Amino acid sequence: MKKMRYGLFFGDSITYGEYDGVFGGWVDILKRYALQKYNEGSHEFILFNLGIGGETTDGLVKRISNEMEARNAVEGNVVFISYGANDLAIKEGVQMVNPKNFKTNVLKAVEEAKKYSENIYLVSILPFSKNVDGVVVASGKLRTNDEVLIYNEVIKNIAAENSLHYIDFHSAFLHDKEILLSADGVHPNEKGYGMMAEIAIPIIEKYL
């Protein structure tokens, strides 16, 4: 008897797949992979890309309850939470979501997700290109790789303390970030998104 589960991917523009005009981003690659496997006889794993460009964890805590309730598979849900690149940004001298509030927000989101899922994955923040590290970009946001390390530590600790899974895209990108990131220095390019999908496919396969 085939099972049907849902995979819910919460995040910002990197979850949404911005700047990838070829594959549509890592979540869309996974979506197609899961469908292909289902057509070959695997369990059904329906993936929902719930990424919103520019969103911080403030936005996540406002919507996660409704989103989870609207997409609740009887046979189980798998939740991915991928935030931080906007939270850590400084705009007009103010950090959008400071580390303390970031931690509070992620914990609130996890608590909500746990009502619907036993399988929760927290996703690391990617490194930024040297061209935008510490630079105010066109959007008015300033980001630094030092802050990425601080916020990733928060994510890692939450995962460890709450028996959640942690996906470390940061380490995978670090060495080759200049060829895996798009021209804006923040979003992956097609190659970068492809690499993220490769890392995530073994995770998806557990539910197929």
Rank of each mutant, 00 (worst) to 15 (best):
F10H: 01
E178F: 09
K2T: 12
N105E: 09
L107R: 11
K108Q: 13
Y193T: 06
R63M: 07
E161A: 12
G11C: 03
V123W: 00
H170D: 12
A183V: 07
E205G: 09
A160M: 10
A160E: 08
G140L: 08
H170Q: 12
I125V: 09
S82H: 15
G134E: 08
G24T: 02
F23Y: 13
S124C: 03
F128V: 02
E55I: 03
N189V: 04
V148N: 00
G93M: 06
M68Y: 09
G76D: 09
K206G: 14
D12M: 06
V94G: 08
K115W: 12
Y116C: 05
P188D: 10
A159N: 07
L122A: 03
N66C: 15
P188E: 08
Y151H: 00
D87K: 02
H175G: 15
I29E: 06
N189H: 15
A34M: 15
D146K: 03
G185A: 12
L60P: 00
Y193E: 01
L164W: 03
E153S: 10
E67I: 07
V94L: 08
R143N: 06
G54P: 07
P202G: 07
A200E: 05
A200Q: 05
L164N: 02
V27R: 01
A172L: 07
K191G: 05
N131G: 11
